[in-house]
Write a protein that binds this DNA or RNA. Structure first.
Lengths: 157, 157
DNA sequence: TATTGTTATACTCTATAACTATA
DNA sequence: TATAGTTATAGAGTATAACAATA
């Protein structure tokens, strides 16, 4: 059996359309959940998603992270990290610790106040996220995670 | 067999952790693809994602859409749609057509120039999106679309 | 020379609220 | 009174590029 050029084109078209539909849906889901989280962070904690994300990174790295590392992990440029860090330092939630071996660099760490502030936010944040996905079974969560893993893998080339 | 409170807590904890991991991955995937699209639209067409999205809505509705409808479909407030529309009108890509039956309202439509400008963008946009998902088989695309459908469904209550 | 981090700047996107005009 | 759309404003978020200090 032979595959005609027309067949190939038809298949390409339908796969393209499928990818586009998927992208729109992915974007919509993310935007809806992200909006919920932003609103919650603003209304309940007078903070923003990038600030929360920065603190979340520090919570996972108690020894601290360098500005450069934060910039990479948060996927934003350095100047922005400086700004966010300045705000959090001003509020006493985060501190810059000099690195003896490299006098250009700092380690940014949560303060004690920062850690407890983050805990409170993380509890609420977890509620919002669990709620966002409660329509799915554990098995479906796992499937989705795996499929998105493939997508993610493919972007980082 | 009996399910203890501790079992329930353990299960809750692991499901919560799973939801959080999933959310981080969903966010990362979306951000990576979105960045690709934004960069492409800027570099190749000197335009932005919200403007592209607005034109995409109009392309799907050749008879035009009211500002109110655009606002709803784009999930942004009215003032923003006015601003985006003003820009596109200034560039001759879009036009406001009075609605005889309601003198408060307009239909916003693509102009001929707008339609051909959008076609050119849509071709490139499709490439970027197909590329973003080319790591997945048609069956996996379908699965992902279906699972995200459940997620989306659950947000809109 | 290259790298870490900061500063300065500018632009896009967004929500909010007050407003005008029509319904 | 309610609705369609606009205006004005302020803030978040981002990238870029020039810069200082150190490696």
């Amino acid at each position: 059996m032979e595959t005609s050029v027309l067949d190939m084109e038809a298949r390409a078209h339908s796969e393209h359309a499928q990818a586009l539909r998927l992208w729109l849906r992915l974007l919509t889901c993310t935007q809806l959940i992200e909006r919920r989280v932003r609103t919650g962070l603003r209304d309940s904690f007078q903070t923003t998603l990038p600030r929360f994300d920065l603190m979340a990174q520090l919570e996972r790295h108690p020894q601290g992270l360098k500005m450069k590392e934060l910039s990479h992990r948060l996927m934003v440029t350095g100047g922005n990290v400086t700004g966010l860090t300045d705000q959090l330092v001003a509020e006493g939630l985060v501190e810059r610790v000099p690195v003896p071996s490299d006098r250009r660099a700092f380690l940014v760490r949560l303060t004690t106040a920062g850690r407890s502030a983050f805990e409170a936010m993380a509890v609420e944040h977890e509620h919002w996220i669990v709620q966002a996905f409660e329509g799915l079974s554990a098995r479906e969560l796992e499937q989705l995670h795996k499929l998105l893993g493939k997508v993610k893998q493919h972007q980082t080339r």
